[in-house]
């Protein structure tokens, strides 16, 4: 999709799909998202930049029914935590079918989601999200 990322360096779209961009610590081996110049778990410098897995499992979910302050995108939208195989839990928007109750533990894949309009370019403003792996929703 064409659009402007809410922030550079958070995610990439490749032929294989959408992946989040994280780090792996050279000392404690923990992963983190987003990237930082230091391991925020153990404090070791210079973690290794990695592409995180494009699929994971749903760990917690809810719906946001009213726009939070500073947000101009559509409501309601799904919101939750997806657990990735790297041992990482990620806060994320969720692209869900409002008529189908999600299940904790169900497989999810990274997708892109329009969260508003970029005031400078007029293009869609795009963030990462996760969507059920077996669903056709998402972009």
């Amino acid at each position: 999709m064409s659009g402007v990322a809410v922030r550079a360096g958070l995610f990439e779209q490749t032929d294989a799909g959408v992946t989040l961009l994280g780090d792996r610590c050279r000392t404690c081996d923990a992963h983190q998202f987003p990237r930082a110049g230091i391991c925020t778990l153990c404090g070791a410098p210079d973690p290794v930049p990695v592409q995180l897995a494009a699929t994971g499992t749903l760990w917690a979910w809810t719906w946001v029914t009213a726009p939070p302050p500073g947000y101009d995108g559509p409501v309601p939208y799904g919101f939750g935590v997806v657990e990735l195989p790297e041992g990482l839990r990620v806060i994320t928007r969720l692209v869900l079918d409002p008529d189908v109750a999600p299940t904790v533990g169900q497989p999810m894949r990274a997708v892109l989601d329009t969260v508003g309009t970029d005031p400078e370019s007029g293009h869609d403003l795009v963030s990462w999200a996760f969507s059920p792996l077996d669903a056709s929703v998402g972009l």
């Binding site: 809810t62 946001v64 939070p68 302050p69 500073g70 947000y71 928007r93 963030s127």
Partner: peptide
């Protein structure tokens, strides 16, 4: 905020669900 990642009641809800 622009990405919709700041709704306080949603964080409370996720914590409640767990």
């Amino acid at each position: 905020e622009q990405a919709g990642l700041t709704p306080a009641p949603a964080y409370f809800a996720l914590r409640a669900q767990r």
